[in-house]
Design a protein around this nucleic acid. Structure first.
Length: 807
RNA sequence: GCCGAGGUGGUGAAAUUGGCAAACACGUACGGUUCAGAGCCGUAUACCUUACGGUUUGUGGGUUCAAAUCCCACCCUCGGCACCA
C-alpha cells in the first residue's frame, strides 16, 4: 500500500473538481435552492489567516452536505479589496494599489483552493472592479435622489497622522484605530447617509431573523431607541428674540419639578445667538473652544469629573412652576443626542447630581425612593416611585406622572412626545484614494448633482502620489483634469467630488451581486434575485455583527423600497447569522506578528495537508466559542486520517458495525446542522476506532463512512472512494439516511441506584418492565449488601435507564 | 456602571426536556514492535485510599428519590457598550 500523501492526492482532486464543475450553482434548477454566505475577505498582504479558514471550512462542510442532500447550493467568494492597508502599502512602495490588490487576491485565491473549498468560482466578484463599483456608485446616486445622502459641514474625528476623517467607531480610547496616534477634531464637509430614518425598521425586523440573541441585543443597543418628552423652556430676553426658548429631551418627565438648571452642549447654537446678552461671553467662549478640540471619545471617557460654566445674563423658566433657573454649558452634554440641551434634575440623575454638588446648585427631591437605605445627600435616586414636591402631581406614580405631566404641558404648548436614537447618520466620505469615487458633481448654479447614470462607473483616475494633501483632501483633488467636469444638469462648469466611499460601501450589497455577477444593465436581475435570495445562512466574524450587519440591512431595505430588489424576497437579506469564535495563539493571546505566534494555514497545509487542517480546525472546540490553537492537536487529527487511510487494506465482509454506522449517520447529520463539528468528528473517530478493531470492513459500511467524512476531509475520501472502485465522485453521492429501527438498542445497561447512589449496573433487555427489573436486580449481591434488613420505601424506575431504591 | 457569554481532569473539551460526570482527542506513564530512535499498536490516566470505600463540575445555600443541568445569593474570567438625558 502506498503511504498517505496528501500533497499528491489533494492537488489531483482539486483539479478534478474544477474540471468537472461539480460546485457550480445553477440559476435554474428543480432542486430547492440553498444560499450559503461567508464574509468575503479583505485581501491583505499577509495571506489567509486561520480565522478565515474557520469560517470558510465550516460553511464548506455545510455546502457539501447540502449538495449531497439534493440542494442547489450557492456558495460564492469574492474580494472586499478597497481599503487603507493596501493604500498605505502603495504609498510606501509607490506601487499602484490595483497591482497590490491583484497580487494579494491571487494569493488568497490560491490558498483557498489549496484548502479544497467548494466555492463557485464563476461568481467571483471584486469591489475594486469598475464593473462592480459602478453599482456601488449607482446605489449612492439613488440614496441621493431619495434625500438619504446629504452633505453637511460637521466637526469630525480627525487623525492628524493618517490625515483622514474617522468614524466614531474608528476612534478607540481617543486614538486612531489604525495608527494608534491621538485623534483630534476638524470641521469638514462630509457626505452622510440617513440611516436614522430606518432605525425603527431595523429594530422591528430583528424579530423576523434567526440571529444569536447577543447579536440582536447589540444591534438594538447600537440603535439605542428611547422614548420621552421634549420640553420647551422659555428664555425671556428682550428684543429681537421675543419668544426664545430652549428645548430639552428627557425620558423622565415625572421629575420635572426637580429640575433646578439647564445645561447646553458646547456646540449649542443658542450661545452664539445670545452672544450679546451673555455677560461672561468671553469665559464661555473659552470653555467652548477648549472642549471642541478634544476628540469625541476623549471628551466622553475622560474621568468622571464634570466641568462646565454658567452662562450669565440669561435665565430659563421651568414651565411646570415658572421658576427661573440658571443655564450652564458643559461638555458632558452631547450636541448630537436629543436636542443638545438637558434639564438637570440632580436629585434623580447621578450625572446632574455630581455637577450640582460641584457647583453648589440646589437639589430638590421629587420622587420618594422605594429603598429606605438610600441617602439623598450621597447620591441621586434614579429609580421610580411616588412623586413628592410636585404640585398637583404629588402622590402619583412615576409611570403615570410621565404621561400626565407631558399631556398637561402639551396642552399649554410646552411639551411633546418624542423619540431619539443613539444611532447617528453614517459618515460616508473618506479623503483618500483607494475607494469608490463618490459620483457627484458640484455646480455653482445647480449645487450638488449626481452624475448621469449612463456615465457610470466614474473610474478612479491615475495619480502619481497616493498621499492625501496637506489640507486633508483626497489625492484626487490634485488631478485637475478629472476634477473639472460639466454639470450634468446645466452643462456648465462643475467640479467632481474628490472624496471616496468608506470600506463598508462595497460590502453593503455584495451578496446580491453573487446572484448575478456580470450584469451590465442592473445591479442584479430580479428573476435571479428571486431565485436565490434571501441568504439562508451567513457566517462571519463577531466583530462585524453590529456595524456591517446593520449597514447592509439598511442598504438592503432601501434597495427594496426603491424596487431595485424585488419585494417578494422579504424585508431582511439574511435569514440566519452565525459567528465563529476567534482563534488565539499559543498561550491564549491574540495572534499577531509582533508576538510571533501567528499560525499560517498555508504552512499547516504544506506540512499535513488540507484535510488535516480542515478537520483540526473543526475538531478543536465549539464553533462559536473562542479557542486556542494547539500544534500538538494537529498531529492527533493527522493520526486519525492515517488510520482511515489504512482501512483500504481490509475491505471485505464484516457485518458487526451496522448499528454503530447508523448511529453515526444520525449524529453527523444532526451535528453539522447545529455547527457542532467537534462532536460530529468525535463520533466519526469512534466509528473509525471500532472499524480498526475489525478484521474486515464491509464495503457498504466503508462507503457510508467515507460519505460521512467527505464534507470534513474531501480529498482523502475522494481518493479512497476511487481506490475502492466505487462509482462517480464521492462528493456527488447521496447523503445517507439512518434507519431509526436499527438505532434502537436491544440490550441496555440498567443503572442501579440505592438512595441516589450508583451501586450496580446490569445488562437487561431494553424494554424491561419495572417489575422484571426489580426482580432481576434485588437478588444481586452488590444490591443485597445495601438492602439487607432494610425496607424499601419507594422505587423509581426510568425505562431504559435506571432504577433507584429509596430505603 | 450596564448588557451578553462563560467557569467541568495536567490540556482542548463531552454530557442541558434533571437520570452512569469526564465521550473524543492531546499530554503523560508503562508495555509491545525495533540494534536504536521515529512511527505504530496495547494498557492505564479526575482526586484521596494498599484496599473496602469516599470525594469531585467557581463558592455557599435551596428544590428533588436523583442536580454540571432547575431556583436564590455571591465570587471570578472573557467580550461588548459606556456621561445617550
Amino acid at each position: 500500500m502506498e503511504k498517505y500523501n496528501p500533497k499528491k492526492i489533494e492537488k489531483k482532486w482539486q483539479k478534478k473538481w474544477e474540471e468537472t464543475g461539480v460546485f457550480a450553482s445553477l440559476d435554474k434548477s428543480k432542486k430547492p435552492k440553498y444560499y450559503l454566505l461567508v464574509e468575503f475577505p479583505y485581501p491583505s498582504g499577509d495571506g489567509l489567516h486561520v480565522g478565515h479558514c474557520r469560517s470558510y471550512v465550516a460553511l464548506d462542510i455545510l455546502a457539501r452536505k447540502k449538495r449531497m442532500q439534493g440542494f442547489n447550493v450557492l456558495f460564492p467568494m469574492g474580494w472586499d479589496a478597497f481599503g487603507l492597508p493596501t493604500e498605505n502599502y502603495a504609498i510606501k512602495t509607490r506601487t499602484h494599489p490595483a497591482i497590490v490588490t491583484r497580487k494579494n487576491t491571487a494569493n488568497f485565491k490560491r490558498q483557498q483552493k489549496d484548502l479544497g473549498l467548494s466555492f463557485d468560482w464563476n461568481r467571483e466578484i471584486n469591489t475594486t472592479d469598475p464593473s462592480y463599483y459602478k453599482w456601488t456608485q449607482w446605489i449612492f446616486i439613488q440614496l441621493f435622489k431619495k434625500g438619504l445622502a446629504y452633505k453637511a459641514k460637521m466637526s469630525i474625528n480627525w487623525c492628524p497622522s493618517c490625515k483622514i476623517g474617522l468614524a466614531n467607531e474608528e476612534v478607540v480610547d481617543g486614538k486612531c484605530e489604525r495608527c494608534g496616534k491621538k485623534a483630534g477634531r476638524k470641521e469638514k464637509e462630509q457626505w452622510l447617509l440617513r440611516i436614522t430614518k430606518y432605525a425603527d425598521r431595523l429594530i422591528h425586523d430583528l424579530d423576523k431573523v434567526d440571529y444569536p440573541e447577543r447579536v440582536k441585543v447589540s444591534q438594538k443597543e447600537w440603535i439605542g431607541r428611547s422614548q420621552g418628552t421634549e420640553i420647551k423652556f422659555p428664555v425671556p430676553v428682550f428684543t429681537p428674540f421675543r419668544d426664545l426658548s430652549l428645548t430639552g429631551f428627557t425620558t423622565r418627565a415625572d421629575t420635572l419639578f426637580g429640575c433646578t438648571y439647564l445645561v447646553l452642549a458646547p456646540e449649542h447654537a443658542l450661545i452664539e445667538k445670545l452672544k450679546r446678552k451673555i455677560s461672561n461671553y468671553k469665559q464661555v467662549k473659552d470653555y467652548v473652544e477648549k472642549s471642541k478640540k478634544k476628540a469625541e471619545k476623549e471628551r466622553i471617557s475622560e474621568d468622571k469629573e464634570k466641568t462646565g460654566i454658567e452662562i450669565k445674563g440669561i435665565k430659563a423658566t421651568n414651565p411646570v412652576n415658572n421658576r427661573k433657573i440658571p443655564i450652564f454649558v458643559a461638555d458632558y452634554v452631547l450636541m448630537h443626542y436629543g436636542t443638545g440641551a438637558i434639564m438637570a434634575v440632580p436629585a434623580h440623575d447621578q450625572r446632574d447630581f455630581d455637577f450640582a454638588k460641584r457647583y453648589n446648585l440646589p437639589i430638590i427631591e421629587v420622587i420618594k425612593p422605594k429603598d429606605s437605605k438610600y441617602d439623598p445627600s450621597k447620591q441621586a435616586y434614579e429609580g421610580e416611585g411616588i412623586l413628592i414636591n410636585s404640585g398637583r402631581f404629588t402622590g402619583i406614580k412615576s409611570e403615570q406622572a410621565k404621561e400626565r405631566i407631558t399631556e398637561w404641558l402639551n396642552a399649554k404648548g410646552f411639551a411633546k412626545k418624542a423619540v431619539h436614537y443613539k444611532l447617528r447618520d453614517w459618515i460616508f466620505s473618506r479623503q483618500r484614494y483607494w475607494g469608490e469615487p463618490i459620483p457627484m458633481i458640484k455646480c455653482e448654479k445647480c449645487g450638488w448633482q449626481p452624475v448621469l447614470e449612463q456615465d457610470l462607473p466614474i473610474k478612479l483616475p491615475e495619480v502619481k502620489n497616493y498621499k492625501p494633501t496637506e489640507k486633508g483632501q483626497s489625492p484626487l483633488a490634485k488631478v485637475e483634469k478629472w476634477v473639472n467636469a460639466e454639470c450634468p444638469k446645466c452643462k456648465g462648469p462643475g467640479q467632481r467630488e474628490t472624496d471616496v466611499m468608506p470600506n463598508w460601501a462595497g460590502s453593503n450589497w455584495y451578496y446580491l451581486r453573487y446572484c448575478d455577477p456580470i450584469n451590465d444593465k442592473k445591479l442584479a436581475d430580479p428573476k435571479k434575485l428571486e431565485h436565490w435570495m434571501p441568504v439562508d445562512w451567513y457566517n462571519g466574524g463577531m466583530e462585524h455583527t453590529t456595524l456591517h450587519l446593520l449597514y447592509s440591512r439598511f442598504i438592503y431595505k432601501f434597495l427594496r423600497d426603491i424596487k431595485a430588489v424585488p419585494r417578494s424576497i422579504g424585508s431582511e437579506p439574511y435569514k440566519k447569522r452565525t459567528s465563529h469564535g476567534m482563534i488565539l495563539g499559543q498561550g491564549g493571546i491574540k495572534m499577531s506578528k509582533s508576538k510571533g505566534n501567528v499560525i499560517s494555514p498555508e504552512k499547516v497545509v504544506k506540512e499535513h495537508g488540507a484535510d488535516t487542517m480542515r478537520v483540526y480546525e473543526m475538531f478543536i472546540g465549539p464553533f462559536e466559542q473562542m479557542i486556542l490553537w494547539d500544534t500538538k492537536g494537529v498531529k492527533g487529527v493527522r493520526r486519525f486520517l492515517e488510520k482511515v487511510w489504512k482501512f483500504q487494506e481490509k475491505l471485505g465482509d464484516g457485518k458487526e458495525l451496522k448499528q454503530l454506522v447508523h448511529k453515526t449517520i444520525k449524529k453527523v447529520t444532526e451535528d453539522i446542522e447545529l455547527l457542532k463539528f467537534n462532536t460530529a468528528i468525535s463520533s466519526l473517530m469512534i466509528l473509525a476506532n471500532k472499524m480498526e478493531q475489525q478484521k474486515e470492513i464491509s464495503l457498504i459500511h466503508y462507503s457510508l463512512f467515507l460519505i460521512l467524512l467527505s464534507p470534513f476531509a474531501p480529498h482523502i475520501t475522494e481518493e479512497l472512494w476511487e481506490r475502492a472502485g466505487f462509482k462517480g465522485l464521492c462528493c456527488e453521492q447521496k447523503w445517507p439516511r439512518y434507519d431509526s429501527k436499527l438505532i434502537k438498542e436491544k440490550k441496555i445497561i440498567l443503572v442501579v441506584q440505592i438512595n441516589g447512589k450508583v451501586r450496580d449496573k446490569i445488562e437487561v433487555d431494553a424494554d424491561i418492565s419495572e417489575k422484571e427489573a426489580e426482580k432481576a436486580v434485588l437478588l444481586r449481591d452488590r444490591v443485597l449488601k445495601y438492602t439487607e434488613g432494610k425496607k424499601i420505601k419507594k422505587t423509581i424506575f426510568i425505562s431504559g435507564k435506571l432504577i433507584n431504591f429509596v430505603l
